[in-house]
Design a protein around this nucleic acid. Structure first.
Length: 851
RNA sequence: GCGAAGGUGGCGGAACGGGCAGACGCGCUGGCCUUAGGAGCCAGUGCCGCAAGGCGUGCGGGUUCGAGUCCCGCCCUUCGCACCA
């Protein structure tokens, strides 16, 4: 290859500083004319960012550059989710303070963004671990406290013994601690909760209006888990009322026993004296079983009779009361009425323990099965039988009429139950925002007055795993109300509280009197496009929605949803090597698929990049070899942004080669383009094809940015155009005005993907106005269509010929049909055949059926 | 078990509301250039076949002039949820 070589290092060093100097990524939030709030989920600063993290921000930077060229005032801020356990754990390992570890990482990550050509308005930077931010996290806590949405209660909570702290329900994933994989223990502790359940119905209903991926909405819907049914009151022989929740009140006449969770508060009172020892033993075992064991469907249903009875409120019959660990203490009322004939779990339980089965719903065919013969529950709705006054009620009305009956008889009521639990936010760790509460012997629980915020994290040398309770003197304070001696709450808040409102702070990050200015956030939010990983589908996204709604109800914001449109990008996977003896290996520890330490064969597999699997690719290596533009282009090209993709060394070379070809193509044309002005107006056939391709390409790229975000195909389209331009200039007789126009537009449409290369070539083309001040190229829909189209002709369903016809002919069915039938190739094929039918689809094809 | 997404060349992946399957890129093959190549350039590349032609989008049916795309019945993968009463 002749000519000046493509030197990404020199080019990238030249332009990186330029964009920052020009302040292209700053926006005046006070006076937007055409606002767009683009937001990437902010990173947790845990060491350096790898190319997988890069994907998120590269997608964002490309979109933001596009939007700027389209004339939007784009707010595209960045910050750091800087509190949290990993910082403490890393600090313990390295013997340094979490603050230092965090700020070192932040400094490094900022350099990485800069190297990638990803620019933000760093004057808007938010760091959640700084007092000027967490002061407002504490303010948020106080507002929720004042309105009754933050409360403290003693409850059985998940405690992670490895992380030394309690966890929210959402942070127990598949029965394990979300962070470290340890199964949490149940502990009875006094903890702070946010009353997210008060918003369950709205969190569910408002999903409908969000432009979010369906599966993410579904996950939230499942998590909230609404079910409709009835509460029914049974009365124990002791006189105690036992409330149960059921979605099938119509089966009440078939309830032949009750089952309580072992933790149910009435178990003590309902246990017969002679069964007490056994019951205690069972309860202990249930408490010991992990959540996963207990929730396993495989497990046989164990249970124990308490030795007492309750009355079925509609039949008046005494039925036995059992406890069983398949009944969850936290769902519904923690007690169920068992209807073995019509519920699969109850059926299994009844069969296992010899309990009676009574059929009260007819089978779909109208028959009434013999309970002794049944080998499964009859769960479909059906006509009620043997059900006292409601006997004969058809399945469609059964539930509603039973509820009406229960309400009339005052033995039950319509009830809606949610699976969602209140959000447990206390954490017994150091690196978080202290809970701004004081406990006074005289005044009780006293919130720290707003004007005394922030309650500062004590600045102490970091000596290991500890919470604020371990720091001498921290808890000692005076009561803000009476001035007497008092103790501070020694817990910090879940870091998801920090991130549940940061998108508000970005609009006015330096505001010192309030966390955000209502008028300003109302102008900028909801976020127009929020991009991040699907791993936050429930946690962060649900919490943020809740906090937004709460702030709305308190009058602080005028909107009820934080993120109008959500896009979840896929993860970047890479080969991981595992030696049977030495565990995960770095690629350099593997030679010919054998471990260099022990020579044993290693297992290879693909996983999302992570430090623990030692399969990350470092951006600095890639940038040193190929430049940031190549990494950016490859990252976007290798697959659809919402899907997981596999990083490949060969693939990145493809991107590198394309940029080299493009560079040489454009640089090679520069001498011919000097002084060329004006738009092309007359075309030869090759020129006409190129002209059409140009408009089609601009259209394609524009639409991908505006709609589906299929940036991989947008890049493919740009490559096609570049290839065609190459062929056109090779072909001789090139019109310099056309070449100039195509080169210009190519550089512009490529600029969101490879901004350095684009800016350099743009400059060399003699353009005075930097790319980010230049409008995105327009396309002419008429030119996209072109003047002639090739129409395939099918004979009996197979493509046998192609005809080239002018557009007006192609769009007229009759003319198209005639043109196709007249074509020589077609004629030859039709000889001796009878044409049965001809279908001409304008602009698409002609299909001929022959016999 | 329930729900969602997906299954297309050797690989990553294209294909707007039924209308040319395999765009773009990787890899591979052949050639050119080079002292050299993990560089570059040119050509080829779904499969079978010398060819004409035939076969091809997980499997089996169906609708249609025409199906990767729609319908019915399965299989597999991934991800959620999972004794939720």
């Amino acid at each position: 290859m002749k000519g000046e070589p493509y030197d990404p290092k020199a080019i990238e060093d030249r332009w990186r500083g330029f964009w920052r100097e020009k302040g292209y990524f700053r926006v005046d939030t006070a006076r937007p004319t055409n606002k767009f709030y683009y937001l990437n989920m902010f990173p947790y600063p845990s060491g350096y960012l790898h190319v997988g993290h890069g994907r998120n921000y590269i997608i964002g930077d490309a979109i933001v550059r596009f939007l700027r060229m389209r004339g939007y005032d784009v707010l595209n801020p960045m910050g750091w989710d800087a509190f949290g356990l990993p910082a403490e754990n890393a600090a313990i390992e390295r013997g340094i303070h979490p603050r230092q570890w965090t700020f070192d990482n932040i400094a490094y990550a900022k350099d990485q963004f800069h190297a990638w050509g990803i620019e933000y308005d760093w004057e808007r930077e938010i760091t959640t671990c700084l007092p000027d931010y967490y002061r407002w996290t504490q303010w948020l806590f106080l507002k929720l406290y004042e309105s009754g949405l933050a409360y403290k209660k003693r409850a059985a909570v998940n405690y992670c013994p490895s992380c030394h702290t309690v966890l929210a329900n959402e942070q127990v994933v598949g029965g394990e601690c979300e962070r470290c994989g340890t199964p949490p223990e149940q502990r009875d502790l006094d903890q702070w909760f946010f009353r997210i359940t008060a918003y369950a119905d709205r969190l569910l209903a408002d999903l409908a209006d969000l432009e979010w991926p369906e599966h993410v909405k579904k996950m939230q819907e499942n998590w909230i888990g609404r079910s409709e049914g009835a509460t029914v009151i049974f009365r124990a022989a002791s006189g105690d009322p036992i409330e149960v929740f059921t979605t099938r009140p119509d089966t009440l006449w078939g309830a032949t026993f009750l089952v309580l969770a072992p933790e149910h508060s009435l178990v003590d009172r309902l246990t017969a004296p002679n069964r007490r020892a056994e019951v205690e033993r069972y309860r202990k075992e249930a408490a010991r079983a992990t959540e996963v064991e207990r929730a396993s469907t495989e497990r046989p249903k164990t249970g124990l009779f308490l030795g007492s009875h309750a009355l079925n409120p509609v039949t008046g019959e005494p039925i036995p009361i059992w406890i069983a660990d398949y009944v969850m203490p936290t769902y519904g009322t923690g007690a169920v009425m068992a209807v073995p004939a019509h519920d699969e779990r109850d059926f299994q339980f009844a069969r296992a323990h010899g309990l009676p089965v009574r059929v009260v719903i007819a089978a779909p065919d109208g028959s009434i099965p013999d309970p002794g013969e049944m080998n499964g529950a009859l769960v479909e709705l059906g006509t009620m039988v043997s059900s006292g006054p409601l006997t004969g009620t058809p399945g469609g009305e059964a539930i509603a009429r039973t509820i009406a009956y229960l309400e009339e008889q005052r033995i039950g009521r319509r009830t809606v139950v949610y699976r969602l639990r209140d959000w447990l936010i206390s954490r017994q760790r150091y690196w978080g925002a202290p809970i701004p509460i004081v406990y006074c012997g005289r005044c009780g629980v006293v919130p720290v007055p707003e004007e005394e915020l922030p309650v500062l994290l004590p600045d102490v040398p970091f000596i290991g795993k500890m919470g604020l309770a371990d720091i001498p003197g921290y808890a000692d304070t005076v009561c803000p109300r009476c001035g007497g001696k008092a103790k501070r709450d020694t817990d910090t808040m879940d870091t998801f509280v920090d991130s549940s409102w940061y998108f508000l702070r970005f609009v006015s990050p330096h505001e010192e009197r309030v966390p955000f200015v209502t008028e300003d956030v109302n102008r900028w939010l909801p976020v127009d496009l929020y991009v991040g990983g699907v791993e936050h589908a429930i946690l962060h996204l649900l919490y943020s929605r809740f906090i937004t709604k709460a702030l709305h109800d308190l009058g602080y914001v005028g909107f009820t949803e934080p993120f109008k449109r959500l896009f979840t990008q896929g993860m970047v996977c890479h080969t991981a090597y595992k030696c049977p003896e030495h565990g995960w290996l770095y690629p350099k520890e593997v030679d010919s698929l054998r471990c260099t330490k022990c020579g044993r064969e290693v297992a290879t597999s693909y996983f999302a990049m992570s430090k623990s699997r030692r399969n990350i690719v470092e951006p600095s290596d890639i940038i040193a070899r190929y430049g940031a533009d190549t990494e950016r282009l490859y990252t976007l090209f290798m697959g659809p942004p919402d899907r997981d993709i596999e990083w490949s060394e060969d693939g990145i070379r493809g991107a590198w080669r394309f940029l080299n070809r493009f560079w040489h193509l454009v640089v090679g044309q520069l001498p011919d383009l000097a002084g060329v002005e004006g738009e092309p107006d007359r075309f030869d056939p090759a020129g006409r094809r190129l002209w059409q391709k140009l408009h089609a390409t601009v259209k394609k790229v524009t639409e991908e940015f505006e709609e589906g975000l299929g940036l991989n195909t947008a890049i493919a389209a740009v490559m096609e155009l570049a290839n065609e331009l190459g062929a056109y200039v090779e072909g001789g007789e090139a019109d310099p005005r056309l070449v100039r126009r195509v080169v210009r537009d190519l550089v512009l449409v490529l600029s969101p993907f490879t901004p350095f290369l684009a800016e350099e070539l743009w400059h060399r083309l003699g353009e005075k106005q930097p790319i980010l001040e230049t409008p995105w190229p327009a396309y002419d829909p008429a030119a996209v269509v072109g003047e002639e189209v090739e129409i395939p002709v099918q004979i009996n369903g197979k493509v046998r010929a192609r005809v080239c016809v002018p557009v007006p002919v192609a769009s007229d069915p009759h003319a198209l049909q005639e043109a196709a039938l007249a074509a020589r190739e077609v004629q030859g094929r039709l000889e001796g055949k009878e044409v049965v039918r001809v279908i001409a689809v304008p602009g698409k094809l002609v299909s001929i059926v022959v016999r």
